[in-house]
Design a binder for these strands. Structure first.
Lengths: 177, 177
DNA sequence: AATGATACCGAACAAAGTGTTCGAAATATA
DNA sequence: TATATTTCGAACACTTTGTTCGGTATCATT
């Protein structure tokens, strides 16, 4: 990939992210984005078909890092839900600047939607070892919603709590005795 | 209020709601709304300052009914969280057509935001009788997110489960032994 | 019914935003 | 240096927004 392309793409995404912290997504114009990125109008449209595609690209880029299965310093049992969640929380902390900007913005709910979809996939996969007396569909929606909101609380609090404690709170709520 | 005003307002809201089931909020134009409502352009703007105000009005109208404290056939202990939630669930079922249209739409996350804000107020009020070993702020976010998602699941499933069972599932998840 | 008051219509308007095109200029790669 | 690729920027047609205003329809009252 050409250096110029990478540079331009990064500039556009950065400008877009900065604008998201100031106003709602639907009120952001392409003109503002390219002004912030210092990029020509036609250049923008050669990179992104539409503003929605830019949103998808940004969300994809952020959550891709968080939900990938690469190794991380976290130690714990693999294949179990608690381990997977700790893994994810660790990645989230590594991406805190990026995530905080979008999840706490006025368009936060938009990104919560993306976030919950990723989480649903995770819970769908890991829910087997988690027998319950409630319907499976209910459980997946419940866990995705509560975990996403837990993470947003964590970020809002400035991540004072450790990822381990967050996972503990969450699992404690889910499986309290 | 004049009959004409009520009629026009209802027509606009109905048209808006119908459009929300077809496309995302930000792609809906005022032109489409007034075409669907069969109403003049200036009339629209004499009722709603902007499209965002229309969104607020719709959300307000829907959730107002759900969160009001009027009497309902549900019987249970007042002043307790479980009772309050049953009350809310009962109202939700009464408004199912309205709620399903917006919560399951492509703009669902937008309305989930409104929904969660209302829920936060409820949980903030009722959380006292609910001592936990987790931070209060965390608890409120957690419960709002999980309850909102629970309700969306309920609606998506066609509300086959009874409100009582939904409340049971939810409280069971929150306070399992 | 007649009469004010009020709400609606619809056409026209300026302003702003969208998405495209194209030749010239800048920059990468070999 | 030569060549391919990317960017620039201005111009373009088009859509959407929000306002204005004179004329018309509808309401509540007597």
């Amino acid at each position: 990939m050409d250096r110029r392309q990478k540079k331009t793409r990064r500039a556009i995404l950065a400008s877009f992210r900065a604008l998201l912290e100031k106003k709602r997504y639907e009120h952001i114009t392409v003109q503002e984005i390219i002004d912030g990125a210092d990029v020509g109008r036609s250049t923008f449209y050669s990179h992104f078909e539409t503003k929605d595609m830019l949103l998808d690209a940004l969300a994809g880029e952020i959550f891709q890092h968080i939900f990938e299965d690469d190794p991380c310093p976290w130690v714990g049992k693999d294949g179990e839900l608690e381990g997977k969640l700790s893994h994810i929380l660790w990645h989230i902390r590594a991406e805190r600047e990026n995530l905080a900007g979008v999840l706490l913005s006025d368009s936060g709910e938009l990104f919560m939607g993306y976030f919950k979809n990723h989480l649903k996939a995770v819970f769908t996969q890991y829910i087997d070892n988690f027998t319950q007396d409630v319907p499976r569909g209910f459980l997946i929606e419940y866990l995705s919603g509560s975990f996403a909101e837990t993470v947003r609380w964590w970020i809002k609090e400035g991540m004072k709590t450790s990822p381990e404690d967050v996972a503990k709170y969450f699992m404690g709520m889910v499986n309290r005795k």
